[in-house]
């Protein structure tokens, strides 16, 4: 579980996150949605400690993370896996070396054991015969999957994904969403996913937080998102015509709502 309370972040006088309080539960996929520039990436980076909050507290289970010194953050960090918006694979290392990197750094496993773990993770994200390739030789979707494999190689308790399916075709995007959800279930991780993709919201949005201009406007699940009467949220959700049609259908079936 990750608990954020009264979190604010200010960049040179502009408030990018404004008094956000939210709890992210383990075992379910927590989605943070919002328009481009609403502060999703800043929220995620503040939660993981890449940015310092200007106000507020962050708790990882019973650890008061935002109070720790950077040296004391390290053990918590080793339980985090993160998928960055641009994959962030180490481009001087092969796929295999990328995934093995955390194992080399933080475990005392032998080569054979490490290879097995790498292959297991690669298989888990459906990548075959790419062990010796460099990130630049992979497609965007493959890079994302390798990055997921690297994020889960140490069995993290917390998984963070910043727009895991931006720039991917709808089918690959769906596969990645499903993968994230499966892994979350399987290892009971606390997973936070940033997205502005309504498909992801409908597919895996077990808990959804909507932020607009750095303010948390709405919180709920994908089941009730279509029926909310929050105007800013509706603006976002029904921005595309398909969603508008679905709402019209729903209103036809149930004219009172």
């Amino acid at each position: 579980m990750i608990k954020v309370s009264n979190l604010s972040k200010i960049f040179n006088g502009t408030t990018v996150l404004d008094d956000i309080s939210v709890t992210f539960e383990p075992g379910i996929t927590n989605l943070v949605i919002g328009k481009s520039g609403s502060g999703k990436t800043v929220l995620l980076k503040t939660v993981v400690g890449l940015l310092e909050p200007d106000m507020g507290d962050i708790w990882y289970d019973d650890i008061h993370f935002s109070e720790l010194s950077s040296a004391d953050k390290k053990p918590v960090r080793q339980k985090m896996g993160m998928l960055f918006q641009g994959s962030a694979l180490f481009d001087s290392l092969t796929v295999e070396e990328n995934i093995m990197f955390p194992l080399n750094m933080f475990t005392r496993k032998g080569m054979k054991e490490k290879r097995e773990r790498v292959n297991f993770c690669l298989q888990r994200v459906n990548i075959k015969n790419a062990n010796k390739m460099y990130p630049s030789e992979l497609s965007g979707g493959m890079q994302k999957r390798v990055a997921i494999a690297r994020a889960i190689v140490l069995n993290p308790g917390y998984l963070f994904c910043d727009e895991p399916n931006s720039g991917l075709d709808p089918k690959t995007a769906l596969l990645i969403d499903e993968l994230i959800k499966e892994l979350t279930d399987e290892y009971n991780m606390t997973t936070i996913v940033n997205t502005h993709d309504m498909n992801s919201v409908m597919e895996i949005g077990e808990k959804v937080i909507f932020i607009s201009r750095g303010i948390k406007c709405w919180e709920g699940s994908n089941k009730d998102i279509l029926e909310s009467d929050n105007e800013t949220l509706n603006d976002f959700v029904f921005a595309n015509s398909l969603a508008k049609k679905i709402r019209a259908e729903m209103q036809k079936k149930n004219p009172t709502s």
Binding site: K45, V48, L50, K73, K74, P75, V76, R77, Q78, M80, G81, M82, F84, Q85, G86, A88, L89, F90, D91, F101, P102, M105, F106, F160
Partner: peptide
């Protein structure tokens, strides 16, 4: 510098390196 702008340094930090 390239590692910085492509978030590879953030990735290292997140791992606790």
């Amino acid at each position: 510098g390239t590692m910085r702008v492509t978030e590879q340094i953030d990735a290292l930090e997140i791992m606790g390196v």
